[in-house]
Design a protein around this nucleic acid. Structure first.
Lengths: 148, 148
DNA sequence: CTACAAGCTCAACTTAACTTGAGGTCAAGC
DNA sequence: GCTTGACCTCAAGTTAAGTTGAGCTTGTAG
């Protein structure tokens, strides 16, 4: 059997492990694209599988669909992304990912390291600060105002 | 000024950087505890700051409140957790955290590494499988049925 | 002692990320 | 040529994680 060129939504669902409804949803949000058959059914090109895989992995580590959408902006609309295209995306995410990795490591190892801080002041807690997206000027109140 | 022994909800909010409403919410979900003054106001012991810090960090890396709640089960109810108590929690999370760390690294480095897979079959994509919580028997369909 | 910022409760609203359901169409096998 | 499973759209429902607001109480600074 010659390799199938285009995938139906059901095939993508099975192969990617996400529900059809989720694929519709991702498409509505502009995360994936399809074209339609004469009968109005979706057909996906193969690279949708990579996109979906990345969506799921990224979500699992706490990146929102909005963030993923933004990262995906760097990918070309019409042609299948090349190695270089994916590289750009990966680079765009690098800082955020590095930060999350180090937070995770702290959570994994640092829970114990942190024990010494006593959390007298959260501002000094290595768990929260040190790599924080906030430059460490200002009180918790400032954080409260600025964050989110 | 002698160090304050107990914290009001507002003080915890400022020091931890989370809204008062969120603290109420965490308490309702059993993530933190307080006792009340004669006037029915919440008073927190200092270790609530560590709890909150951990809640936020854990959330940021994609752990749900439900997961955090579960992890917190290992902490003692009545006394302030000791170093050893926190260690137990940290250990309980280790696998999950290790897995997330490696997924993040893959996202960071592996986006490129993965380029070769072509995603002909998502089952073979190193991004999703390899460390997957699913033993790699069975198709995507199985995953679809089993997962979540 | 009184003003008023800080607390309290409880219900309702919000946003993200989907899922479910109703009602109708498409296409591959018998 | 029809039946049946896969698709389609669109609206409404769901869960998580909070936030907002109304109406009422507390406690501290002047």
């Amino acid at each position: 059997m010659a390799p199938v060129r285009e995938l139906t939504v059901g095939q993508v669902a099975v192969r990617s492990g996400v529900a059809v409804s989720a694929l519709h949803f991702y498409e509505a949000r502009g995360l994936i694209r399809s074209h339609r058959t004469s009968g109005n059914q979706r057909r996906y090109s193969r690279d949708v599988l990579r996109r979906v895989a990345i969506i799921r992995v990224a979500q699992e580590v706490g990146i929102s669909l909005a963030g993923i959408t933004q990262a995906f902006q760097s990918l070309p609309e019409e042609r299948t992304p090349t190695r270089e295209d994916w590289n750009v995306l990966s680079t765009a995410w690098r800082d955020e990912l590095d930060q999350k990795i180090s937070q995770l490591k702290k959570l994994r190892d640092g829970l114990t390291d942190c024990i010494g801080c006593g959390c007298m002041s959260i501002d000094k807690c290595p768990l929260r600060n040190k790599e924080d997206r906030l430059s460490a000027q200002g009180s918790g109140a400032r954080r409260l105002l600025v964050e989110r």
